[in-house]
Nucleic acid binder design. Structure first.
Lengths: 162, 162
DNA sequence: TCAATATCATTTCGATTGCAACGATAATTT
DNA sequence: AAATTATCGTTGCAATCGAAATGATATTGA
């Protein structure tokens, strides 16, 4: 094939980027329009809800956000009254972030909608298709792990610290 | 399930965002480190190579980039000598963008690497798996099309105008 | 024909982003 | 213990981005 015939629309990295971007845009209307949250804030909210007393570093490691983004998201949510932040007693460098009652209420409102959106998305998927899709995604991650310059796959959700 | 147990790592929009971002980051080293191109510039290059004499609007419609991004990418590539830009004779508003020889040389260098990267990525996929993966992606797009607020799927590559 | 509307590419402007640097605290080494 | 090194969260800064405004040209409609 001649280089000039190369077509982006059949190129896997492009296809995934477009699909992911489209999905994210629709999802964002759920937390943005209704609750004034940005994407980083949405991710922080969800993670803090599941793992109490997390540090900025924890969040950074678990939800694929750069440290500055986490720090800024947390600051804004503390300001908005959704999160509470206190210095850890054991390690003064660390910070302990937790949900406030207001934050809990927002979470309670958002999660059902997020899940319903996901259900709608995968509406046409059979059980087998859904799990097969996950398998293929895993295969791609495994391949990426081999790349030296690939930002090492984050140790998702194992919540190593504390 | 309690809202607090909601786990991002099993949430489709999140999984796709992380995967796409990871792939894009590795891909970007190919055109960034070696040729000094940004992602928008990479997309513009490829599209202009395939469809000669395109307008900014064409590119915008075909490669999922906002108009300002296309405009800026083109400007920088003209500056770098990779593209030539002339006003259309038929419609003075339009612009006709084409590859220069230098641009063609860069393309010739990049495309094989991009394709080899894709091949490496899908290395573990069988024929069936690859096509099934595409099917599932299509199903998700179809579902997104139903969403009113979904940025209408771009009329990819049909190159309607001129 | 000529006013009103639409389309195109660019630019402006405020907001967001990531990298690197920073101050503060802990851990390690000598 | 003192000094060096590492880690944590935050901030400065330059670059990038998108929504809306702008100026220029085409198209439509009265």
């Amino acid at each position: 094939m001649k280089p000039n015939d190369f077509n982006l629309s059949g190129f896997l990295p492009y296809k995934l980027a477009v699909l992911a971007s489209r999905i994210s845009k629709v999802l964002s209307t759920i937390y943005e329009e209704r609750f004034g949250l940005s994407m980083p804030e949405w991710r922080v909210l969800v993670h803090v809800a599941r793992c109490e007393k997390v540090s900025v570093r924890d969040i950074h490691n678990c939800v694929n956000l750069e440290k500055p983004r986490v720090s800024r998201a947390v600051a804004k949510m503390v300001e908005a009254g959704l999160l509470a932040k206190t210095a850890s007693t054991r390690d003064q460098r660390l910070v302990e972030i937790e949900l406030t009652e207001a934050g809990q209420r927002v979470l309670n409102d958002i999660i059902p909608e997020a899940m319903s959106f996901q259900a709608r998305l995968m509406g046409a998927f059979s059980e087998d298709e859904a799990s097969h899709f996950d398998d293929l995604i895993e295969q791609l991650h495994d391949e990426l792990d081999k790349h030296a310059n690939a930002p090492r796959r984050s140790s998702m959700d194992t919540n190593i610290s504390d």
